[in-house]
């Protein structure tokens, strides 16, 4: 469909256009099948609202987050400096991303390397669009549904973003229920710090199993996430217990589905 064309930065520049905001898709959003659906949902929201954005497309590269957290500063520096060169080359000022790991590293760690941008997570962009009245959520689809929100560590504790994702869920008219461990005390899904790229160390159970158990305690219809890695981990966790009721779903998907995009 033509209204869902994705503006790529290089093409925009050739046409002499400047985007207001760059959508940083991230590796998971680009390659992981589950996260790709979130990317598409978010693109649909952006297109639907007529937001002047662009993506880097094939010029985007890993932020270097997993390498840095795993202790490999060289690989991180190579990727980060390469990305900063690309972003600065295009004169990018504002970035939105659906991945809290990309969000954290571009916002907090790129400035020391010469990459200074205003960076927002998609939950924050959605929240401000709702607040401004630009994004109106049709009630209905999630009315009365029990939704619990799993805080991403890199959004919550790492950057103190706790309310924006919850505000988006509240805007759905859904019944937001909190897990016993939430907000500042929210338990990790087990993916961060490059854990998702290797087997877990010896232990009694997997982190995502434990976190899924906590989520299922509140018996939700939807387990809302705001991170592609939380999405992977908790989807696996839900599959493991063969729970067919609860759906792990990203905030962008909730909004897109509510508005039948």
């Amino acid at each position: 469909m033509s209204e869902n064309k994705v503006p790529v930065m290089a093409h925009m520049l050739a046409e002499g256009k400047v985007p207001d905001i760059l959508f940083w898709v991230g590796c998971a959003g680009s390659f992981d099948q589950r996260a790709q659906k979130v990317t598409v949902a978010f693109i649909k929201i952006l297109n639907n609202l007529g937001i002047n954005y662009a993506v880097l497309g094939t010029e985007e590269a890993c932020t270097g987050d997993p390498a840095r957290r795993a202790g490999n500063e060289f690989v991180f520096q190579m990727l980060a400096q390469q990305n900063i060169a690309t972003l600065n080359g295009y004169g990018i000022r504002k970035i939105v991303t659906t991945c809290p790991h990309c969000f954290n590293i571009i916002k907090n760690e790129y400035p020391a390397l010469g990459g200074k941008y205003e960076v927002v997570h998609h939950s924050q962009l959605l929240q401000s669009l709702i607040d401004e009245g630009r994004l109106k959520i049709k009630g209905g689809a999630f009315k009365g549904k029990k939704v619990t929100y799993h805080d991403s560590c890199y959004l919550g504790r790492a950057n103190d973003v706790y309310e924006a994702p919850r505000d988006v869920i509240r805007a759905l008219d859904a019944d937001l229920v909190e897990m016993r461990s939430c907000g500042k005390r929210g338990m990790c899904c087990g993916a961060g710090g490059a854990q998702v790229f290797k087997e877990e160390e010896r232990g009694k159970l997997r982190v995502n199993t434990k976190r899924t158990q906590q989520a299922l305690e509140v018996d939700p219809d939807y387990l809302a996430v705001a991170c592609p890695y939380c999405n992977m981990m908790l989807s696996d966790g839900v599959k493991e217990v063969e729970n067919t009721k609860v759906k792990v779903i990203d905030l962008a998907e909730l909004v897109a589905q509510a508005n039948e995009l």
């Binding site: 994705v6 680009s30 590269a61 890993c62 390498a67 690989v75 990727l79 490059a194 290797k198």
Partner: peptide, 24 residues
């Protein structure tokens, strides 16, 4: 392996960088 993938493919997995926008 993840480090090598990031260096060679600009992603932690072994995907071709040219496929980065296949989702679209």
């Amino acid at each position: 392996t993840m480090f090598t993938n990031i260096e060679n493919n600009q992603a932690p997995w072994q995907f071709s960088p040219s496929d980065r926008m296949k989702w679209a």
